[in-house]
């Protein structure tokens, strides 16, 4: 008798098939040194940076109710939610939607009585420079006070075309949040009433939270030396 015969094969014990994983980059080495200076022996090490993969039905708990309600509402509104993914990780559910669907989805999430996400906690930008074609992510956290549920909505845009529709018309609170995300990442929220910088000065060049934003070093008064910028310093990675 082989070992595998004893394995419990009840449905809840079989691991769910892994969905498509999302790789957002590669980690190299261990100690942040590259080239000839690397004597650690770990310089050739490469590890993929992988975000949690797509979830499979059933998502569990009320996640399925929300997903069903969203699909049904989208169907009734004649909206085709193609290429949308759902990620469930650490007890939080994320709906990835195409940017062209964002405004319609937000409207459904707020107004459909099975969904009723009446409170938006703003938008947070994330820049994944190595996630080619989807470098810029805009992440919205929505709260339904009626049902006491929280979901996350994620939209991406390529660096070459950093446009995402504004949802200020649905959630007026996102006015300043979208301005901040534009300020920090350069994501242009189409349809925003007045998309200007909010935290940085009006004439500031560049968008500081982007990973490719150049950082400054610190000159030291010793034989013309400088402390290199933080992203060029040797550090664990």
């Amino acid at each position: 008798m082989t070992e595998s015969d004893h394995t419990d094969k009840t449905p809840e014990n079989v691991p769910a098939p892994t969905g498509e994983v999302q790789q957002v980059g590669v980690r190299q080495g261990m100690f942040g040194v590259h080239g000839t200076g690397d004597t650690s022996g770990y310089g050739g090490l490469t590890q993929a940076k992988v975000l949690p993969g797509e979830a499979q039905r059933p998502y569990g708990g009320w996640f399925d109710e929300v997903a069903d309600a969203l699909e049904a509402a989208a169907g009734a509104a004649g909206l085709e939610l193609g290429a949308s993914r759902v990620v469930v990780h650490r007890g939080e559910i994320t709906f990835h939607v195409r940017r062209e669907d964002l405004l319609a989805v937000a409207q459904l999430l707020r107004d459909d009585e099975r969904l009723r996400f009446e409170f938006c906690s703003g938008v947070s930008g994330v820049h994944y420079p190595e996630d080619s074609g989807h470098e810029l992510h805009a992440v919205y956290h929505l709260l339904s006070m009626t049902h006491n549920r929280r979901i996350r909505l994620e939209v991406t845009a390529p660096d070459a075309d950093p446009h995402i529709p504004s949802i200020v018309s649905v959630y007026p609170t996102n006015d300043w949040h979208e301005r901040e995300t534009f300020d920090m990442f350069g994501i242009v929220f189409d349809g925003h009433p007045a998309l200007t910088r909010i935290l940085m000065p009006d004439d500031w060049p560049g968008h500081p939270q982007r990973k490719d934003y150049p950082l400054g070093g610190i000159p030291v008064e010793y034989k013309g030396g400088t402390v290199p910028p933080p992203d060029e310093r040797r550090s664990y990675n």
Binding site: V24, G25, R27, Q47, K49, V50, L51, S121, G122, S124, G125, V126, H127, H141, T173, W176, H177, E180, Q209, S235, Y236, N237
Partner: peptide, 17 residues
Amino acid sequence: DGGTRPFRAHFRDPSFT
């Protein structure tokens, strides 16, 4: 991103909103 430092930390501050 699986590293030893935050890849991104954004604060939704109530004063701001």
